[in-house]
Design a protein around this nucleic acid. Structure first.
Lengths: 227, 227
DNA sequence: TAAAATTTTTAGGCAAAACTAAATAATTTT
DNA sequence: AAAATTATTTAGTTTTGCCTAAAAATTTTA
Protein backbone atom coordinates (compact mmCIF):
# COMPACT_ATOMS: atom_id res chain seq x y z
CA UNK A 1 0.00 0.00 0.00
CA UNK A 2 2.65 2.50 1.06
CA UNK A 3 6.38 2.21 0.46
CA UNK A 4 8.85 1.15 3.14
CA UNK A 5 10.22 4.64 3.20
CA UNK A 6 6.81 6.19 3.69
CA UNK A 7 6.10 3.72 6.48
CA UNK A 8 9.36 4.61 8.18
CA UNK A 9 8.43 8.27 8.12
CA UNK A 10 5.01 7.56 9.63
CA UNK A 11 6.59 5.50 12.38
CA UNK A 12 9.20 8.17 13.11
CA UNK A 13 6.57 10.92 13.26
CA UNK A 14 4.49 8.81 15.63
CA UNK A 15 7.42 8.22 17.98
CA UNK A 16 8.43 11.89 17.96
CA UNK A 17 4.85 13.00 18.64
CA UNK A 18 4.78 10.65 21.63
CA UNK A 19 8.11 11.58 23.11
CA UNK A 20 8.23 15.34 22.77
CA UNK A 21 5.88 18.03 23.95
CA UNK A 22 6.35 20.36 21.02
CA UNK A 23 5.45 19.50 17.46
CA UNK A 24 7.55 17.43 15.10
CA UNK A 25 10.01 19.47 13.04
CA UNK A 26 11.83 18.70 9.83
CA UNK A 27 15.18 18.65 11.59
CA UNK A 28 14.03 16.27 14.32
CA UNK A 29 12.77 13.92 11.65
CA UNK A 30 15.94 14.19 9.63
CA UNK A 31 17.96 13.27 12.69
CA UNK A 32 15.68 10.37 13.62
CA UNK A 33 15.77 8.97 10.10
CA UNK A 34 19.41 9.77 9.36
CA UNK A 35 18.61 11.73 6.22
CA UNK A 36 18.98 15.33 5.13
CA UNK A 37 16.33 17.93 5.90
CA UNK A 38 15.70 18.50 2.20
CA UNK A 39 14.67 14.85 1.76
CA UNK A 40 12.31 15.14 4.70
CA UNK A 41 10.57 18.19 3.27
CA UNK A 42 10.03 16.38 0.02
CA UNK A 43 8.58 13.30 1.67
CA UNK A 44 6.31 15.35 3.93
CA UNK A 45 4.76 16.96 0.88
CA UNK A 46 4.09 13.53 -0.57
CA UNK A 47 2.60 12.21 2.69
CA UNK A 48 0.42 15.31 2.98
CA UNK A 49 -0.94 14.71 -0.53
CA UNK A 50 -1.86 11.20 0.55
CA UNK A 51 -3.67 12.61 3.60
CA UNK A 52 -1.41 10.78 6.02
CA UNK A 53 -0.04 13.91 7.70
CA UNK A 54 -0.96 17.53 8.31
CA UNK A 55 1.88 19.60 7.01
CA UNK A 56 2.30 23.37 7.08
CA UNK A 57 5.48 24.76 5.56
CA UNK A 58 7.99 25.84 8.17
CA UNK A 59 5.70 24.77 11.03
CA UNK A 60 6.23 21.04 11.30
CA UNK A 61 4.02 18.03 10.87
CA UNK A 62 1.47 15.84 12.66
CA UNK A 63 -0.27 12.58 11.80
CA UNK A 64 -3.85 12.51 10.54
CA UNK A 65 -6.07 9.77 12.04
CA UNK A 66 -5.35 7.74 8.90
CA UNK A 67 -1.61 8.23 9.31
CA UNK A 68 -1.71 7.38 12.99
CA UNK A 69 -3.60 4.19 12.44
CA UNK A 70 -1.12 3.13 9.79
CA UNK A 71 1.79 3.96 12.13
CA UNK A 72 0.23 1.87 14.87
CA UNK A 73 -0.19 -1.03 12.47
CA UNK A 74 3.53 -0.95 11.69
CA UNK A 75 4.45 -0.68 15.36
CA UNK A 76 2.15 -3.63 16.07
CA UNK A 77 3.95 -5.71 13.48
CA UNK A 78 7.37 -4.60 14.70
CA UNK A 79 6.66 -5.60 18.28
CA UNK A 80 4.96 -8.88 17.44
CA UNK A 81 7.96 -9.89 15.35
CA UNK A 82 10.31 -8.90 18.18
CA UNK A 83 8.32 -11.10 20.50
CA UNK A 84 8.49 -13.96 18.01
CA UNK A 85 12.24 -13.63 17.52
CA UNK A 86 12.94 -13.71 21.25
CA UNK A 87 10.35 -16.27 22.20
CA UNK A 88 10.68 -18.73 19.32
CA UNK A 89 14.01 -18.13 17.62
CA UNK A 90 16.44 -17.62 20.49
CA UNK A 91 17.26 -14.02 19.68
CA UNK A 92 18.55 -11.80 22.46
CA UNK A 93 16.72 -8.57 23.19
CA UNK A 94 19.50 -6.52 21.73
CA UNK A 95 19.54 -8.43 18.43
CA UNK A 96 15.91 -8.17 17.43
CA UNK A 97 15.54 -4.57 16.37
CA UNK A 98 17.35 -4.70 13.05
CA UNK A 99 15.43 -7.73 11.84
CA UNK A 100 12.06 -6.50 13.13
CA UNK A 101 12.76 -3.29 11.22
CA UNK A 102 12.60 -5.35 8.04
CA UNK A 103 9.78 -7.69 9.02
CA UNK A 104 7.45 -4.84 10.00
CA UNK A 105 7.00 -3.94 6.32
CA UNK A 106 5.63 -7.31 5.22
CA UNK A 107 2.09 -6.82 3.93
CA UNK A 108 -0.44 -9.46 4.92
CA UNK A 109 -3.39 -9.04 7.23
CA UNK A 110 -3.62 -12.76 7.75
CA UNK A 111 0.06 -13.06 8.62
CA UNK A 112 -0.18 -10.51 11.42
CA UNK A 113 -3.37 -11.90 12.88
CA UNK A 114 -2.16 -15.48 12.82
CA UNK A 115 1.21 -14.52 14.26
CA UNK A 116 -0.54 -12.65 17.07
CA UNK A 117 -2.67 -15.69 17.77
CA UNK A 118 0.31 -18.08 17.54
CA UNK A 119 2.20 -16.01 20.13
CA UNK A 120 -0.79 -15.94 22.48
CA UNK A 121 -1.76 -12.31 21.88
CA UNK A 122 1.00 -10.73 23.96
CA UNK A 123 0.42 -7.20 25.31
CA UNK A 124 4.06 -6.16 25.58
CA UNK A 125 7.14 -6.85 23.53
CA UNK A 126 10.43 -8.10 25.00
CA UNK A 127 11.54 -4.51 25.69
CA UNK A 128 8.40 -3.88 27.72
CA UNK A 129 6.77 -1.73 25.04
CA UNK A 130 3.01 -2.11 24.54
CA UNK A 131 1.70 -3.92 21.46
CA UNK A 132 -1.37 -2.28 19.85
CA UNK A 133 -4.20 -4.68 19.03
CA UNK A 134 -5.60 -5.21 15.54
CA UNK A 135 -7.74 -2.09 15.91
CA UNK A 136 -4.70 0.01 16.84
CA UNK A 137 -5.59 0.26 20.52
CA UNK A 138 -2.79 0.07 23.07
CA UNK A 139 -3.25 -2.14 26.14
CA UNK A 140 -4.98 -0.06 28.79
CA UNK A 141 -2.88 -1.24 31.70
CA UNK A 142 0.57 0.26 31.94
CA UNK A 143 3.80 -1.61 32.01
CA UNK A 144 4.84 -1.96 35.60
CA UNK A 145 8.28 -2.58 36.97
CA UNK A 146 9.12 -5.34 39.41
CA UNK A 147 10.31 -2.60 41.78
CA UNK A 148 6.72 -1.39 42.25
CA UNK A 149 5.51 -4.57 43.96
CA UNK A 150 5.65 -5.86 47.51
CA UNK A 151 6.46 -8.98 49.49
CA UNK A 152 4.20 -11.90 48.66
CA UNK A 153 3.36 -10.79 45.12
CA UNK A 154 3.82 -13.32 42.38
CA UNK A 155 4.56 -11.92 38.97
CA UNK A 156 5.23 -12.89 35.38
CA UNK A 157 8.11 -11.28 33.52
CA UNK A 158 6.85 -9.48 30.45
CA UNK A 159 9.83 -7.46 29.34
CA UNK A 160 13.20 -6.00 30.12
CA UNK A 161 14.26 -2.46 29.42
CA UNK A 162 17.39 -1.42 27.61
CA UNK A 163 19.24 -4.60 28.28
CA UNK A 164 22.98 -4.13 28.43
CA UNK A 165 24.70 -7.36 27.54
CA UNK A 166 25.85 -7.88 31.12
CA UNK A 167 22.30 -7.46 32.48
CA UNK A 168 21.21 -9.89 29.84
CA UNK A 169 23.80 -12.45 30.84
CA UNK A 170 22.78 -12.04 34.44
CA UNK A 171 19.14 -12.78 33.62
CA UNK A 172 20.10 -15.71 31.45
CA UNK A 173 22.28 -17.14 34.21
CA UNK A 174 19.42 -17.06 36.64
CA UNK A 175 16.90 -18.43 34.18
CA UNK A 176 14.83 -15.26 34.08
CA UNK A 177 13.17 -14.78 30.69
CA UNK A 178 9.89 -13.83 29.09
CA UNK A 179 6.99 -15.34 31.05
CA UNK A 180 9.15 -16.53 33.91
CA UNK A 181 7.29 -16.64 37.25
CA UNK A 182 8.89 -14.61 40.02
CA UNK A 183 7.65 -14.27 43.59
CA UNK A 184 8.91 -11.70 46.06
CA UNK A 185 10.18 -13.20 49.30
CA UNK A 186 11.59 -10.14 51.02
CA UNK A 187 12.71 -6.58 50.41
CA UNK A 188 15.69 -4.89 52.08
CA UNK A 189 14.62 -1.50 53.23
CA UNK A 190 17.98 0.26 53.06
CA UNK A 191 18.75 -0.38 49.36
CA UNK A 192 15.39 -1.71 48.13
CA UNK A 193 16.98 -4.89 46.87
CA UNK A 194 14.68 -7.90 46.59
CA UNK A 195 15.01 -11.56 47.40
CA UNK A 196 12.90 -13.38 44.81
CA UNK A 197 12.10 -16.98 44.07
CA UNK A 198 12.54 -18.18 40.49
CA UNK A 199 11.83 -21.86 39.99
CA UNK A 200 13.46 -23.51 42.98
CA UNK A 201 16.14 -20.89 43.49
CA UNK A 202 16.21 -17.71 45.49
CA UNK A 203 17.95 -14.78 43.86
CA UNK A 204 18.98 -11.36 45.07
CA UNK A 205 18.03 -8.50 42.75
CA UNK A 206 19.33 -4.95 43.13
CA UNK A 207 17.02 -1.97 42.82
CA UNK A 208 18.54 -1.24 39.41
CA UNK A 209 17.65 -4.75 38.32
CA UNK A 210 14.07 -4.67 39.61
CA UNK A 211 13.50 -1.35 37.84
CA UNK A 212 14.44 -2.87 34.53
CA UNK A 213 12.20 -5.90 34.71
CA UNK A 214 8.62 -5.40 33.51
CA UNK A 215 6.01 -7.67 35.03
CA UNK A 216 2.34 -8.48 35.12
CA UNK A 217 0.38 -9.85 38.03
CA UNK A 218 -0.10 -13.58 37.86
CA UNK A 219 -3.85 -14.01 37.88
CA UNK A 220 -3.82 -17.66 38.88
CA UNK A 221 -1.73 -17.06 41.94
CA UNK A 222 -3.98 -14.20 42.98
CA UNK A 223 -6.83 -16.67 43.29
CA UNK A 224 -4.57 -18.92 45.32
CA UNK A 225 -3.70 -16.03 47.60
CA UNK A 226 -7.38 -15.56 48.44
CA UNK A 227 -7.96 -19.24 49.10
CA UNK B 1 23.38 -6.97 -0.12
CA UNK B 2 21.42 -7.10 -3.36
CA UNK B 3 18.10 -5.39 -4.06
CA UNK B 4 14.78 -7.22 -4.04
CA UNK B 5 14.57 -6.77 -7.74
CA UNK B 6 18.00 -8.25 -8.33
CA UNK B 7 17.12 -11.18 -6.10
CA UNK B 8 13.94 -11.79 -8.05
CA UNK B 9 15.90 -11.91 -11.29
CA UNK B 10 18.37 -14.42 -9.84
CA UNK B 11 15.55 -16.63 -8.64
CA UNK B 12 13.76 -16.46 -11.97
CA UNK B 13 16.92 -17.31 -13.89
CA UNK B 14 17.53 -20.26 -11.59
CA UNK B 15 14.02 -21.62 -12.10
CA UNK B 16 14.20 -21.20 -15.88
CA UNK B 17 17.61 -22.90 -16.02
CA UNK B 18 16.14 -25.83 -14.12
CA UNK B 19 12.97 -26.23 -16.09
CA UNK B 20 14.09 -25.74 -19.68
CA UNK B 21 16.72 -27.51 -21.72
CA UNK B 22 17.80 -24.51 -23.73
CA UNK B 23 19.37 -21.38 -22.27
CA UNK B 24 17.47 -18.56 -20.59
CA UNK B 25 16.44 -15.81 -23.00
CA UNK B 26 15.44 -12.22 -22.38
CA UNK B 27 11.88 -12.88 -23.47
CA UNK B 28 11.45 -15.90 -21.19
CA UNK B 29 12.62 -13.82 -18.29
CA UNK B 30 10.38 -10.92 -19.17
CA UNK B 31 7.41 -13.28 -19.23
CA UNK B 32 8.37 -14.94 -15.93
CA UNK B 33 8.85 -11.59 -14.21
CA UNK B 34 5.97 -9.78 -15.89
CA UNK B 35 8.15 -6.96 -17.17
CA UNK B 36 9.18 -5.69 -20.58
CA UNK B 37 12.17 -7.15 -22.42
CA UNK B 38 13.94 -3.80 -22.35
CA UNK B 39 13.92 -3.79 -18.54
CA UNK B 40 15.35 -7.28 -18.51
CA UNK B 41 18.25 -6.35 -20.77
CA UNK B 42 19.10 -3.46 -18.52
CA UNK B 43 19.08 -5.58 -15.38
CA UNK B 44 21.11 -8.36 -16.98
CA UNK B 45 23.86 -5.89 -17.72
CA UNK B 46 23.87 -4.81 -14.11
CA UNK B 47 23.92 -8.40 -12.81
CA UNK B 48 26.74 -9.25 -15.20
CA UNK B 49 28.79 -6.35 -13.86
CA UNK B 50 28.30 -7.74 -10.38
CA UNK B 51 29.49 -11.17 -11.60
CA UNK B 52 26.20 -12.84 -10.73
CA UNK B 53 25.42 -13.93 -14.29
CA UNK B 54 27.16 -14.67 -17.56
CA UNK B 55 25.54 -12.51 -20.18
CA UNK B 56 26.29 -12.33 -23.90
CA UNK B 57 24.22 -9.85 -25.89
CA UNK B 58 21.51 -11.56 -27.94
CA UNK B 59 22.49 -15.02 -26.62
CA UNK B 60 20.84 -15.24 -23.25
CA UNK B 61 22.08 -15.60 -19.71
CA UNK B 62 23.22 -18.13 -17.13
CA UNK B 63 24.07 -17.95 -13.43
CA UNK B 64 27.66 -17.84 -12.21
CA UNK B 65 28.44 -20.02 -9.16
CA UNK B 66 28.09 -16.87 -7.06
CA UNK B 67 24.68 -16.11 -8.62
CA UNK B 68 23.48 -19.66 -8.20
CA UNK B 69 24.38 -19.77 -4.55
CA UNK B 70 22.46 -16.54 -3.90
CA UNK B 71 19.49 -17.90 -5.82
CA UNK B 72 19.52 -21.03 -3.68
CA UNK B 73 19.71 -18.94 -0.52
CA UNK B 74 16.57 -17.07 -1.56
CA UNK B 75 14.78 -20.27 -2.49
CA UNK B 76 15.77 -21.73 0.87
CA UNK B 77 14.23 -18.76 2.67
CA UNK B 78 11.11 -18.85 0.52
CA UNK B 79 10.44 -22.50 1.23
CA UNK B 80 11.23 -22.32 4.93
CA UNK B 81 8.78 -19.44 5.30
CA UNK B 82 6.15 -21.38 3.36
CA UNK B 83 6.63 -24.26 5.74
CA UNK B 84 6.31 -21.92 8.70
CA UNK B 85 3.14 -20.31 7.39
CA UNK B 86 1.42 -23.65 6.84
CA UNK B 87 2.75 -25.41 9.90
CA UNK B 88 2.51 -22.63 12.48
CA UNK B 89 0.15 -19.98 11.16
CA UNK B 90 -2.72 -21.98 9.65
CA UNK B 91 -2.14 -20.84 6.08
CA UNK B 92 -3.44 -23.03 3.29
CA UNK B 93 -1.00 -24.21 0.65
CA UNK B 94 -2.48 -21.89 -1.93
CA UNK B 95 -2.17 -18.79 0.27
CA UNK B 96 1.51 -18.95 1.16
CA UNK B 97 3.23 -17.95 -2.04
CA UNK B 98 2.48 -14.24 -2.02
CA UNK B 99 3.65 -13.76 1.55
CA UNK B 100 6.72 -15.98 1.18
CA UNK B 101 7.60 -13.87 -1.85
CA UNK B 102 8.01 -10.94 0.54
CA UNK B 103 9.60 -12.80 3.44
CA UNK B 104 12.30 -14.35 1.26
CA UNK B 105 14.03 -10.98 0.97
CA UNK B 106 14.57 -10.43 4.69
CA UNK B 107 18.29 -10.26 5.37
CA UNK B 108 19.50 -12.04 8.48
CA UNK B 109 21.67 -15.12 8.64
CA UNK B 110 20.60 -15.81 12.19
CA UNK B 111 16.91 -15.53 11.33
CA UNK B 112 17.13 -18.19 8.64
CA UNK B 113 19.18 -20.60 10.68
CA UNK B 114 17.02 -20.27 13.76
CA UNK B 115 13.84 -20.59 11.73
CA UNK B 116 15.19 -23.74 10.09
CA UNK B 117 16.01 -25.14 13.51
CA UNK B 118 12.65 -24.10 14.98
CA UNK B 119 10.83 -25.92 12.18
CA UNK B 120 12.89 -29.07 12.69
CA UNK B 121 15.04 -28.67 9.58
CA UNK B 122 12.43 -29.78 7.05
CA UNK B 123 13.63 -31.16 3.69
CA UNK B 124 10.56 -30.28 1.65
CA UNK B 125 8.13 -27.38 1.66
CA UNK B 126 4.35 -27.81 1.75
CA UNK B 127 4.23 -28.04 -2.06
CA UNK B 128 6.70 -30.93 -2.01
CA UNK B 129 9.60 -28.81 -3.27
CA UNK B 130 13.05 -29.49 -1.80
CA UNK B 131 14.56 -27.00 0.65
CA UNK B 132 18.31 -26.34 0.13
CA UNK B 133 20.40 -26.50 3.31
CA UNK B 134 22.50 -23.61 4.61
CA UNK B 135 25.28 -24.54 2.19
CA UNK B 136 22.88 -24.45 -0.75
CA UNK B 137 22.73 -28.22 -1.18
CA UNK B 138 19.39 -29.78 -2.09
CA UNK B 139 18.27 -32.92 -0.21
CA UNK B 140 19.68 -35.92 -2.04
CA UNK B 141 16.56 -38.06 -1.84
CA UNK B 142 13.80 -37.19 -4.23
CA UNK B 143 10.27 -36.29 -3.37
CA UNK B 144 8.17 -39.43 -3.74
CA UNK B 145 4.46 -39.69 -4.27
CA UNK B 146 2.18 -41.83 -2.16
CA UNK B 147 1.24 -43.68 -5.35
CA UNK B 148 4.76 -45.18 -5.57
CA UNK B 149 4.42 -47.24 -2.39
CA UNK B 150 2.92 -50.62 -1.59
CA UNK B 151 0.68 -52.34 0.93
CA UNK B 152 2.10 -52.29 4.45
CA UNK B 153 4.20 -49.16 4.00
CA UNK B 154 3.77 -46.45 6.61
CA UNK B 155 4.47 -42.94 5.44
CA UNK B 156 4.58 -39.34 6.58
CA UNK B 157 2.95 -36.68 4.44
CA UNK B 158 5.52 -34.09 3.43
CA UNK B 159 3.72 -32.08 0.78
CA UNK B 160 0.84 -31.77 -1.64
CA UNK B 161 1.15 -30.71 -5.25
CA UNK B 162 -0.89 -28.01 -6.89
CA UNK B 163 -3.72 -28.17 -4.45
CA UNK B 164 -7.03 -27.18 -5.97
CA UNK B 165 -9.30 -25.89 -3.27
CA UNK B 166 -11.52 -28.96 -3.50
CA UNK B 167 -8.54 -31.31 -3.06
CA UNK B 168 -7.52 -29.18 -0.13
CA UNK B 169 -10.93 -29.41 1.47
CA UNK B 170 -10.90 -33.15 0.94
CA UNK B 171 -7.56 -33.48 2.77
CA UNK B 172 -8.74 -31.20 5.55
CA UNK B 173 -11.90 -33.20 5.96
CA UNK B 174 -9.96 -36.40 6.42
CA UNK B 175 -7.37 -34.81 8.72
CA UNK B 176 -4.52 -35.27 6.29
CA UNK B 177 -1.91 -32.54 6.68
CA UNK B 178 1.81 -31.95 6.89
CA UNK B 179 3.47 -34.75 8.91
CA UNK B 180 0.32 -36.86 9.11
CA UNK B 181 1.05 -40.59 9.38
CA UNK B 182 -0.57 -42.71 6.68
CA UNK B 183 -0.35 -46.48 6.31
CA UNK B 184 -1.40 -48.38 3.22
CA UNK B 185 -3.91 -51.12 3.95
CA UNK B 186 -4.74 -52.27 0.43
CA UNK B 187 -4.53 -51.28 -3.21
CA UNK B 188 -7.20 -51.94 -5.82
CA UNK B 189 -5.53 -53.30 -8.92
CA UNK B 190 -8.03 -52.10 -11.49
CA UNK B 191 -7.89 -48.34 -10.68
CA UNK B 192 -4.88 -48.18 -8.35
CA UNK B 193 -6.94 -46.60 -5.61
CA UNK B 194 -5.68 -47.08 -2.07
CA UNK B 195 -7.28 -47.83 1.23
CA UNK B 196 -5.19 -46.04 3.86
CA UNK B 197 -5.33 -45.66 7.58
CA UNK B 198 -5.12 -42.14 9.02
CA UNK B 199 -5.41 -41.95 12.76
CA UNK B 200 -8.24 -44.35 13.56
CA UNK B 201 -10.05 -43.98 10.27
CA UNK B 202 -9.71 -45.80 6.97
CA UNK B 203 -9.97 -43.64 3.87
CA UNK B 204 -10.20 -44.42 0.18
CA UNK B 205 -7.83 -42.42 -2.01
CA UNK B 206 -8.07 -42.33 -5.81
CA UNK B 207 -4.97 -42.64 -7.96
CA UNK B 208 -5.17 -38.92 -8.70
CA UNK B 209 -5.13 -38.23 -4.99
CA UNK B 210 -2.19 -40.52 -4.20
CA UNK B 211 -0.18 -38.94 -7.00
CA UNK B 212 -0.58 -35.54 -5.45
CA UNK B 213 0.52 -36.44 -1.96
CA UNK B 214 4.27 -36.37 -1.30
CA UNK B 215 5.54 -38.65 1.42
CA UNK B 216 8.60 -39.89 3.22
CA UNK B 217 9.17 -43.27 4.75
CA UNK B 218 8.53 -43.31 8.46
CA UNK B 219 11.81 -44.44 9.97
CA UNK B 220 10.39 -45.43 13.34
CA UNK B 221 7.79 -47.71 11.88
CA UNK B 222 10.44 -49.37 9.72
CA UNK B 223 12.14 -50.54 12.87
CA UNK B 224 8.85 -51.83 14.17
CA UNK B 225 8.28 -53.71 10.93
CA UNK B 226 11.51 -55.62 11.47
CA UNK B 227 10.75 -56.47 15.05
C1' DT C 1 13.48 45.92 16.08
C1' DA C 2 17.07 45.17 12.93
C1' DA C 3 20.95 42.07 12.23
C1' DA C 4 22.69 37.49 12.86
C1' DA C 5 22.01 32.78 13.21
C1' DT C 6 19.38 28.86 12.41
C1' DT C 7 15.99 26.15 10.14
C1' DT C 8 13.45 24.98 6.25
C1' DT C 9 12.44 24.94 1.52
C1' DT C 10 13.52 25.19 -3.43
C1' DA C 11 16.16 23.94 -7.39
C1' DG C 12 18.84 20.92 -9.79
C1' DG C 13 21.22 16.19 -9.84
C1' DC C 14 21.75 11.18 -9.39
C1' DA C 15 20.74 6.06 -9.22
C1' DA C 16 17.54 2.20 -9.45
C1' DA C 17 14.10 0.11 -11.87
C1' DA C 18 10.49 0.39 -14.51
C1' DC C 19 8.35 2.09 -19.14
C1' DT C 20 7.66 3.23 -24.69
C1' DA C 21 9.32 3.74 -29.18
C1' DA C 22 12.86 3.14 -32.42
C1' DA C 23 16.83 0.69 -34.10
C1' DT C 24 19.41 -3.42 -34.78
C1' DA C 25 20.55 -8.33 -34.70
C1' DA C 26 19.08 -13.07 -35.26
C1' DT C 27 16.09 -16.39 -37.11
C1' DT C 28 12.64 -18.13 -40.38
C1' DT C 29 10.47 -18.27 -44.53
C1' DT C 30 10.13 -18.25 -49.29
C1' DA D 1 20.31 -15.80 -50.14
C1' DA D 2 17.22 -12.07 -49.73
C1' DA D 3 13.03 -10.74 -47.44
C1' DA D 4 10.10 -11.02 -43.61
C1' DT D 5 9.45 -11.86 -38.96
C1' DT D 6 10.76 -12.07 -34.34
C1' DA D 7 13.79 -11.07 -30.52
C1' DT D 8 16.81 -8.01 -28.37
C1' DT D 9 19.00 -3.82 -27.41
C1' DT D 10 19.42 1.28 -27.31
C1' DA D 11 17.70 5.79 -26.36
C1' DG D 12 14.98 8.69 -24.01
C1' DT D 13 11.24 9.17 -19.96
C1' DT D 14 9.19 8.49 -15.43
C1' DT D 15 8.94 7.80 -10.36
C1' DT D 16 10.89 7.23 -5.86
C1' DG D 17 13.96 8.68 -2.66
C1' DC D 18 18.01 10.39 -1.76
C1' DC D 19 21.78 14.18 -2.26
C1' DT D 20 24.19 19.29 -2.36
C1' DA D 21 24.01 24.12 -2.81
C1' DA D 22 21.48 28.21 -2.78
C1' DA D 23 17.47 30.87 -1.42
C1' DA D 24 13.91 32.06 1.75
C1' DA D 25 11.58 32.05 6.16
C1' DT D 26 11.78 31.91 11.07
C1' DT D 27 13.90 32.58 15.40
C1' DT D 28 17.37 34.48 18.33
C1' DT D 29 20.20 38.06 19.90
C1' DA D 30 22.06 42.35 20.66
Amino acid sequence: MYSQSEENYLKAIYHLEESSEKGVSTSKLSEELQTKAASVTEMLKRLAEKKLVNYRKYYGVSLTPEGKSWALAIIRKHRLWEYFLVECLNFNWDEVHEVAEQLEHIQSKKLVEELDCFLGRPSFDPHGDPIPNAAGVLPEFKKRRLSEFKVGDTLICKGFSDASSSFLQFLDQHKIGLNTLVSIKSIQEFDESMLVKVGNNEIMLSKTATQNIFVERNKESKIKERA
